[in-house]
Amino acid sequence: MIEILSDTALATVQDLGRTGALNWGVGTSGAMDPLALAAGNLLLGNPAGAAAIEIQVFPFLVRFTEPCAFALTGADCAARLDDRPLLPWWSGAATAGQTLRLGLPTGTTWRASRAYLCVAGGIDVPDVLGSRSTQLRGAFGGHEGRALRQGDHLRTGTAAARITGFGAMPPALALPLERGGLPAIRVLPSAEYARYTAASRAAFWAEPWRITPQSDRYGYRLAGPTLTPEAPIELRSHGIVPGVIQVPHGGQPIVQMRDAQPSGGYPKIGTIIEADLWRLGQAPIGSRFHFIETDWTSALAARDANEAWLAGLDRLAGLHRMRSAAR
């Protein structure tokens, strides 16, 4: 069991998301940084989509009530197991009674905002409608359908002893993307793109966007140039996905994130490609970034690059565990 010691709001149990329930109005949820969640799981020999804890408010403390192999990925939080420092993107082993502490994210070579605590066997919460992710709006999934609280006890899946003490190269460094010294995120234009003024379209790509404090797992409200349609746009409700960039009448875009509803009606100027959504999921509030226009072929190449990176990690981590176990 893991006991939550800190009274921080907004840490939730997440996996790679809930698919197959859109027709009941249920959005996907899932990790804001799916690459980090998958990498942590692969270090431990878990399936890539095992449930983990997503942490976005620090410091965050948990106590292991029994021996537990774990991995920390995502934001570098200068973590300590009791008084021993841990490397970021690293697996470790706790003995019963040890306390894990994640401090404020430090950003020497990569500024990030969410950390993932993966455990051998995954966080053992019920599968609800095909996923263990917390559905905050529907108040189901994850741990009792809500964010974690002080005193919560989470069971971990049963797992044999694991080889730990090694790590993964953070994908932010392995798969970097920036423009003009700022992080960059690739976008495919969406249905209403052509209905915005030429000046708005040009500014959308050229100007940096800032992530406002009104940003969370549901959506990121951005600040930047005002986006103006040639004529007012009123749409019928339609399916949307995480990554869709909606423009409400005020002209400042909202990017739908993992807890987004599965449908909407605001005009869509573009959609962040799935391969890059983790970059925004990790970008801190107040930070700035650029949108880069991409095409279908490049977007699939980006997906392939992410998949190849994870497959490589899975293969090498498996080899390393096998060799270490044989020694």
């Binding site: 570098d76 490397l87 020497t108 070579t109 790590g167 190269m169 990690l313």
Partner: peptide
């Protein structure tokens, strides 16, 4: 992710403690 060495000259280390890293593809 760090700009400081794991174990600069003069660091007292225990047996089994990492003193540096080796990158193999995505693995550290």
């Amino acid at each position: 992710l760090h700009d400081t060495l794991l174990a600069p000259a003069g660091t007292l280390v225990e047996a089994g403690q990492p003193v540096a890293l080796l990158r193999i593809g995505a693995l550290l």
